[in-house]
Design a protein around this nucleic acid. Structure first.
Lengths: 143, 143
DNA sequence: TTCGTCGTAACAATTACTGTTACGACCAAG
DNA sequence: CTTGGTCGTAACAGTAATTGTTACGACGAA
């Protein structure tokens, strides 16, 4: 499975903005966030643009502009972030339709879908149990 | 996330072999399995080779050869299959090390790792709860 | 008007998976 | 011991997603 760091980067960026705002700043620039994440500012802007669509972040333009949180860190769960940036499910069915002449070919799709639905539900329950406030607390404790 | 059909194909192939063997055949060829899955036989051989390494399947060579199960379908869980074919975790940390000068950069890795470990554990619990016997039962009921 | 920042297009590089061809290795059958 | 069917595996192209990078227009506060 292609390991995906998008959720990590998104959580990192939002947590960084949240901490920065608590220290009295209005907005955080993609440049600042990119320095902490160690990547290119465009990567941050692209990711935050998806989070803005989901109502988790917002941006100002012009001089002295940047990014801010729409909700408090305590009101954002990792499931919110996951749903904002992850397009598809973890597991997929066949690319090409299996042989409809075959019993297994006909029945395997529904059978696996039932399992995958439960897996996704379990994954979502776990992500829903952690807020970015929890993440920030762990971050500050680790430092 | 890049949706992955490998688990689907592997479960399909093993279930097909199991059903074929219950109907009195010794071995199943990659050609037969590929027809049911609707793909190329080499794809099946590659995948079954990984399952053989994990002790789930075995092959014979020569004329009249093919693939067979090592254990009964009831003794193989989807977690066994998942572990045999999935190389890495669902979520990854940063590709490049975050800024060690930054509090968030230092602490975000351990914080997210803790969450991801729980997510993986939940995913594994779900997969462990379904055997290929369960899958075959669903397949036959759907038909 | 200027300058800093976002918005976004465009492109290359990387990685993983899939599909396909090809050919050698192996072994039962005759 | 030859034949033919099957696996084992290398090699390559195509597809797709992610990431990193450059570039430039849009915007707005000063």
């Amino acid at each position: 499975m292609s390991a995906n760091s998008r959720l990590t980067i998104a959580a990192h960026a939002l947590t960084w903005i949240g901490l920065y705002q608590r220290r009295g700043h209005e907005v955080a620039t993609s440049e600042q966030i990119a320095t902490s994440v160690n990547t290119n500012p465009v990567v941050i802007r692209r990711l935050l643009a998806e989070l803005r669509k989901a109502g988790l972040a917002d941006s100002q333009r012009g001089a002295g502009a940047g990014w801010m949180l729409v909700r408090d860190l305590a009101a954002i769960t990792l499931l919110d972030v996951y749903e904002a940036i992850e397009p598809g499910p973890v597991f997929a069915l066949h690319r090409a339709t299996p042989d409809p002449e075959c019993v297994v070919g006909r029945g395997i799709g529904p059978a696996m879908t039932a399992v995958y639905d439960e897996v996704e539900a379990a994954l979502r329950r776990e992500l829903a149990g952690t807020t970015l406030e929890d993440v920030l607390r762990d971050v500050l404790n680790a430092a």
